[in-house]
Design a protein around this nucleic acid. Sequence first.
DNA 1: TGTCAGGGGTGCACTGAGTGTCATTCGCCT
DNA 2: AGGCGAATGACACTCAGTGCACCCCTGACA
Lengths: 222, 222
Amino acid sequence: MRDALVAAAFQLFLERGYEQTTVDDIVALAGVGRRSFFRYFPSKEDVVFPDHERCLAEMTAFLADSTDDQDPVRRVCDAVRIVLRMYTENPTFSVQRYRLTKKVPGLRAYELSVVWRYERAFADYLRGRLANLRDGTLRADVIAAAVAAAHNNALRSWLRSDGQGDASAALDHALGYVQSAFAAPSTPDGEEEAEDVVIVVSRRGAPLWRVVQEIESALEKE
Amino acid sequence: MRDALVAAAFQLFLERGYEQTTVDDIVALAGVGRRSFFRYFPSKEDVVFPDHERCLAEMTAFLADSTDDQDPVRRVCDAVRIVLRMYTENPTFSVQRYRLTKKVPGLRAYELSVVWRYERAFADYLRGRLANLRDGTLRADVIAAAVAAAHNNALRSWLRSDGQGDASAALDHALGYVQSAFAAPSTPDGEEEAEDVVIVVSRRGAPLWRVVQEIESALEKE
DNA sequence: TGTCAGGGGTGCACTGAGTGTCATTCGCCT
DNA sequence: AGGCGAATGACACTCAGTGCACCCCTGACA
């Protein structure tokens, strides 16, 4: 019944648009009573995101049974991969939904509130793990937001490519950037085994952020 | 008229709650016609955030007339201070609104969409400035999210203290953390009048933050 | 002074989301 | 078969939001 409602809803949304489709249209096509729609979906917007509630619960459970000996940032990065997988499991559905949410402001707002709940789950977990650190809640909030932003960036570029690219690799890459930014300064990977050197010559009057950009591109160059 | 509607709305929201107050109640108290309410506010939620539209425009304009020789991350940090100032200009109003949005899910969702527009403005600006870098859009999105999260963290702790603490100082502290994470430290003194060059030799594979530290100390040394 | 034009405010009727209530029906167990 | 509980549906209602026509005030112009 849930699935029938979702199928009917998307069929109508795609052929005449979200706002041009009333709940009466959906239940008429699905052949069920109007009241039953609101039994399964608290609002018309919920039918567009039928699996987020389950995914959020799964992700919260994943964070809940973490052990203290794991890097909390890494753990959150693993958690966000669960969310991405929910999207990549149904590529065509996800792409259709993306096109829909992109043009309907109401759906965009609803999606934001969903994303916010994921981010809150990250932040709450990190707050617990970073409580003993100085500025623990600040770090938790900022890292949670950065992880969510990296996820959204990777997800959106995958969605824009109609689900063709490698979303998982893109997410790994994006999370690598976040982790490098927030990595504990004590453990630099590969620091010891690096062999060659980079020489950057900069005028002393140049702004520091530009110098940093130069160094970054120099380090990235093969 | 706008102000009268806002005043009437908040009086009723505070004494009987947001959802228990209808638009008819508000216009009856304000002594205006129902249709006029929707002339000034597109929706019932908008009356709770009467000044965000103006603030968003102000902030966008601030970012629009930036020059290329400024550190873009610093520029975004300055922009977010404008937003905080809008809150701190009316402490009691902001605190009342905070209590309201905290308990009404619909208002929380609306606030999220507002915050999202600020974050988009940051990200769009940063995307333009970091376009030449590798992963420019990724960096832009992540930094924008981090700055917004730092702002929200400082703002919320100020709101929870009933507007008693020093919000500006808290924001500066939070932004300092974000800037240190993304390797955009403060510009050293005597930047402009320096003429000679600095040569930094760094092992490829060294973490960026350590390289930046080397540069900073090199620049600071006479 | 009469008149015309335009804009801000208003009343009215309508659509559509969401909810409470109660009757009905279906599946299932004994 | 009978009965019980959960799922479903029909109906009426509230309220947010919109389109439309109208009014009234003001100010320009003949």
